[in-house]
Simulated scan of single mutants.
Amino acid sequence: MAVIKATDSDFNDVLNANQNVVVKYYADWCGNCRLFSPKFKRMSDDEQFTNIAFVDVNAETSPEARKLAGVTNLPFFAVFKGGQLVDTIAASKEDAVRSLIHKLDV
């Protein structure tokens, strides 16, 4: 599945349209964010995650979406189930993000 690009204007719509969502918060200047992008795309194509929406949010241009997850560092990941925040992690390791995704019980 393609990674969805979301902004403050459509972030809540994306959360409401998908039962399970993992969000990657990034900034254009963040090197680790850029390095993680291909891993995030690969995870979005992983068959075990077919019922999860993968979303990219620019933390600098979407302050409301950033506040919903309490972003403290970049890259920052959050999982939402039924529109509600489940858990977050600031990490650049794929294993840590996969562990976070598994908290969605899918």
Rank of each mutant, 00 (worst) to 15 (best):
L35R: 15
K5W: 02
T50F: 03
K24N: 09
K41P: 00
M43H: 08
L104P: 04
D95L: 05
N58P: 00
T88W: 01
F11H: 05
S9Y: 06
N32M: 08
A2L: 13
I4K: 14
S92W: 04
E60V: 06
N51Q: 14
I101C: 11
F36W: 02
T7K: 14
T50Q: 15
A53F: 11
A90S: 15
D87Q: 12
V3M: 10
C33P: 03
A17I: 05
S9M: 05
S9W: 00
K93E: 03
D10P: 11
F11D: 07
W29F: 15
P75F: 12
Q48E: 15
Q19N: 13
Q84K: 06
V97G: 03
V79M: 12
E94V: 08
A27K: 05
Y25I: 02
K5M: 08
D95H: 02
A96H: 01
D45G: 06
I101V: 14
Y26I: 06
A91R: 00
S37G: 15
M43D: 00
V55G: 05
L15H: 09
Y25T: 05
K93R: 10
N32L: 13
I52D: 01
F11K: 08
A2E: 15
D46K: 01
L100T: 08
F76Q: 13
N73F: 09
V3A: 12
V86K: 02
D10A: 04
A17S: 15
S44N: 00
G31I: 10
K93N: 09
